[in-house]
């Protein structure tokens, strides 16, 4: 079943077209890789879908409903969650309180209920020491907390924006397994922006490739990684 789709989604900033007529869709239970060179428009694309910025043209449909221009917090409530490339833990709040926020506002749970749900979620992701200040977390814990915060919204569609950046190989393995498990158990549609190709190969069922704001290729990782257009986008003309 299609959870999310866009049609001709376009965003231009004062004439600079950052996202150009992208049409795509995501199925329930699918993990989709979103790759492309720096500046290709991957994060802008996710910003459009999560409502952080509004499109210049085009259509976004979530579970058959037009959500193109509804505000970001409303999309979060309906079930679209995401993490951020630059993570900002909420200072003055503990680890568990950070995770409670989505539960309180996206789902409208009481503080007590939100705490119970956040505890279960942290437990599921292997987070301990829940009353710690966020400044005392390791980088892996911060990444897990960021995923837990997004999952606290109880989403149906989840976007992970470079969630593996800064992790070592073992930590990546750990996190890949977690993402696969939560996606499977919750029947999530997951969109993953990632620069580490090993992660894309391991984690995703399908990949879309963006370059200069346009969708230039789509398919399984093996197909896409052999596509001459994609190789050119990454390495330039005359590349190896």
């Amino acid at each position: 079943m299609i959870k999310l789709k866009t049609e001709n989604l376009t965003k231009s900033f004062l004439g600079l077209v950052a996202v150009n007529k992208i049409s795509f869709s995501m199925e329930e239970g699918e993990i989709l890789g979103i790759i492309g060179p720096n500046g290709a428009g991957k994060t802008t694309f996710i910003n459009l879908i999560s409502g952080i910025i509004m499109p210049t043209e085009g259509l976004i449909e979530y579970k058959g409903m037009d959500i193109t221009y509804i505000p970001a917090h409303e999309r979060a409530r309906r079930g679209i969650a995401r993490t951020y490339q630059l993570i900002h833990p909420l200072e003055n709040l503990t680890l568990i309180e950070n995770v409670m926020v989505g539960s309180i506002f996206a789902k409208g749970h009481s503080l007590k209920e939100a705490r119970n749900k956040a505890e279960a979620l942290c437990h599921e992701l292997g987070l301990t020491g829940l009353d710690r200040d966020t400044s005392r977390l390791t980088i892996l814990e911060v990444k897990k907390m960021e995923i837990a915060r997004a999952l606290a919204n109880e989403p149906e569609v989840l976007f992970l924006d470079e969630v593996m950046a800064g992790l070592n190989a073992d930590e990546m393995k750990d996190l890949i397994a977690i993402v696969q498990r939560v996606a499977l158990e919750r029947h999530l549609a997951v969109g993953v922006i990632e620069h580490v190709m090993g992660v894309i190969r391991e984690l995703t069922h399908r990949v879309i490739v963006l370059e200069a704001g346009e969708l230039i290729a789509e398919g399984k990782y093996e197909e896409v990684s052999n596509n001459p257009r994609v190789i050119e986008a990454y390495l330039g003309r005359g590349g190896v």
Binding site: S50, G51, I52, P71, A72, H73, E74, A76, R77, A81, R82, Y84, H88, P89, L90, E91, N92, L93, E97, M100, V101, G102, I104, F105, A106, K107, L111, R149, A150, A152, N153
Partner: peptide
Amino acid sequence: KSKIHFALTAIRNNEISAQSSGIDI
């Protein structure tokens, strides 16, 4: 002691990620 604490703290920290947690800033 209430939800307001969470809302205001999240808004103060980062308005964009606050919205993504469903907060109507």
